[in-house]
Computed example of a mutant assay.
Amino acid sequence: MAILVLGATGNTGSEVVKQLQQKQADFRVMVRNAQAAQALNLTGEQVYLGDFDDVASMIAAMQGVSSVYLAMVAHPDNKQWVTNVLEAMKASGAKHLVKLSGMGARQDAGSEIIRTHAITDEMVKQSGVSYTLVQPNSFYQNLFGSLETIKSMGQFFLPLADAAQSVVDIRDVAAVAVSALTESGHSGQTYLLSGPQGLTFAEQAKVLSAAAAKDIQYVAVPKLAAQQAMQSAGMNPWLAEHLAEIMDWFAQGDYAYVTNDVEKVLGRPARTFDAFAKEFAQLV
Rank of each mutant, 00 (worst) to 15 (best):
A220T: 10
A105Y: 09
A226K: 13
S152C: 05
D26T: 01
P269K: 10
V262H: 04
I113W: 13
A36S: 13
V31Q: 09
Q228P: 02
M153W: 05
T83L: 04
P222N: 13
T43K: 09
V124W: 00
S92W: 14
M235L: 09
E45T: 06
Q165Y: 07
M153V: 06
L49I: 14
L239T: 04
V219Q: 14
D26C: 01
S127H: 14
L160A: 03
T149A: 13
Y140G: 09
V284S: 15
V262W: 04
V16K: 06
M103R: 10
Q24N: 11
L158F: 08
H186D: 05
M103T: 06
V65Q: 08
Q282M: 12
A180M: 02
A105H: 07
Q21E: 15
F52P: 07
L42D: 05
Q126F: 03
V68L: 12
V207C: 02
Q46N: 02
P269N: 10
A109E: 09
G64P: 04
G185A: 04
Q231H: 05
D51M: 08
G253L: 02
L4I: 10
V258W: 15
F280S: 01
V176D: 06
T132H: 13
R271T: 10
D54Q: 10
A94Y: 08
I216A: 12
A220S: 14
Q217G: 04
S101R: 06
A118G: 07
Y257R: 06
S194K: 03
A2Q: 13
T182L: 05
A2N: 11
K23A: 15
A71H: 04
L266C: 02
A88M: 00
A240C: 04
G50V: 07
G234P: 01
D121F: 00
E148T: 12
M1T: 15
A244E: 11
K99Q: 06
V173E: 11
V134F: 10
A36G: 04
S179A: 11
N11S: 11
A180S: 03
E148I: 05
K278G: 00
G44K: 12
R268P: 00
T132V: 13
A212R: 10
A177N: 02
S57K: 13
Q46D: 03
M72K: 07
A60F: 12
V82D: 09
I113N: 15
Q35H: 02
Q228T: 09
G188F: 05
N41L: 03
K278Y: 01
V73R: 08
K23Y: 14
E241Q: 00
S152G: 15
S194E: 09
T12D: 12
E279P: 00
Q189T: 05
M89C: 06
K223N: 14
S184Q: 10
K79M: 13
G128M: 02
F280Y: 12
D172K: 00
F276L: 14
D53K: 07
H96K: 14
M1S: 15
L266V: 00
Q19I: 02
A61E: 15
